[in-house]
Simulated scan of single mutants.
Amino acid sequence: MSRTFGPPPSAAEMEAIARAALDRLPSDFARHARDVALMVEEFADAETLAALGLDDPFELTGLFEGVSLPEQSIEDSGRLPNRVRLFRQPILDEWIADGHDLEHLITHVVVHEIGHHFGLSDEDMHALESADD
Rank of each mutant, 00 (worst) to 15 (best):
M1C: 11
S2H: 13
S2I: 06
P8C: 00
P9C: 05
P9R: 01
A16E: 15
A18G: 08
A18C: 06
A20E: 15
A20M: 07
D23K: 09
L25I: 10
L25N: 11
S27T: 10
S27Y: 03
D28R: 13
F29R: 15
F29W: 15
F29H: 14
A30Y: 07
D35Q: 12
L38D: 11
L38C: 12
M39D: 09
M39S: 09
E41I: 00
E42R: 14
E42M: 08
F43R: 11
A44K: 01
D45C: 04
A46P: 04
E47W: 00
D56E: 13
P57L: 03
F58T: 09
E59T: 02
G62I: 01
L63H: 05
L63W: 00
F64W: 07
G66C: 07
S68H: 11
S68R: 03
P70C: 06
E75H: 11
D76P: 11
L80C: 03
L80Q: 13
L80P: 10
V84N: 05
V84C: 03
R85W: 01
L86S: 04
L86C: 04
R88I: 02
R88D: 04
Q89A: 15
P90H: 03
P90W: 00
E94L: 12
W95S: 06
W95H: 03
D98A: 14
G99D: 05
G99I: 06
H100F: 14
L102C: 05
E103I: 01
E103L: 09
L105Y: 07
L105P: 10
V110I: 04
E113G: 05
I114Y: 08
G115M: 06
G115R: 04
G119N: 01
L120W: 10
S121I: 06
E123K: 12
D124R: 08
M125G: 01
E129I: 02
A131S: 14
A131Y: 13
